[in-house]
Computed example of a mutant assay.
Amino acid sequence: MLHQLLVPLVVGFAAGAALRPVVAALIVPVGHPTCPAGPVHPRSLYGLLLTTGRDHSGHWGVPCLLEVTTAAAFAAVAAGGASGWYAVAQYWIAFLGAGLLLIDSAVQRLPNVLTLHAGAGTLVLLTAAAAAGEPGSLSRAVAVAAAAGALFTAAALGGMGLGDAKLAVSLGALLGWHSWQAALVALVTSYFLGAVVAIGLLVTGRQHRKSHLAFGPFLIIGTLATLVTST
């Protein structure tokens, strides 16, 4: 099993390295201008490297965090055993999802450039899967994506960000291709993980009741976990 995961781990690590300049440019708080394209000084990666998030002092955390996260996401997809264009769609979400997970965790934003590419790419790849006659349902994928988008757009009225709604469209489509049940399980799993982390942060005093906890990472983790166990 470990041998079968070696290639996805290596490819995922390389994909994370390729994504790093994009994440470095986007991992800034809401309202701040994005960093220019090209080489970025390591200190600007304060969120990516798990710094305090309070300033740009550049306290180093986990080295190669993006690469390791992407490698783990690719390994999870491979462990799920999906094949064909549906597998490619899962790797696409794992690729962009790793960057979105770290950006949202650090600065609580889900940039349009990643969420919209995630949605468009997923739709194209699932359409290719349908054209190839792979098991699954494109119409159900579209229906779940629309339902997820509507649900999280309504939730945005209660304080949840619209970025979560855009992300939910691509994740919902990926889950909906498999089944409505998978989409429901992923949603429950995501909220459960979010609740556990929120309670843990409250108990340890790292957050208070009015603190805002980024939900995007839990949506991504909940989706990948569901796909791994249901594919």
Score class of each variant (00 low, 15 high):
A82H: 13
S57H: 14
D55M: 13
L66P: 01
E67V: 00
L50R: 15
A89R: 07
L65K: 08
G97W: 03
A78G: 01
A71P: 07
I93S: 06
A82R: 06
H56M: 10
L96R: 01
C64W: 08
V88A: 12
A87Q: 14
A94I: 04
A73K: 02
W85E: 03
Y86C: 09
P42T: 01
L49Y: 13
L49C: 14
A78W: 05
L66D: 04
A76W: 14
L66V: 03
T51L: 06
G47S: 02
L65T: 01
L66Y: 02
S44P: 00
A78H: 12
Y86T: 15
H56F: 15
A79R: 06
L48F: 03
W60L: 15
A87H: 03
G47E: 08
A79W: 11
S57R: 15
A82P: 07
R43W: 15
D55W: 10
A73D: 05
A72V: 10
G58H: 12
I93F: 06
G84E: 10
A89I: 07
A82Q: 12
L66A: 02
H56G: 12
E67D: 00
I93C: 07
G97V: 00
T52Y: 11
L45A: 06
L49N: 11
A94K: 08
R43P: 06
W60M: 13
G81S: 10
G99C: 02
G61K: 09
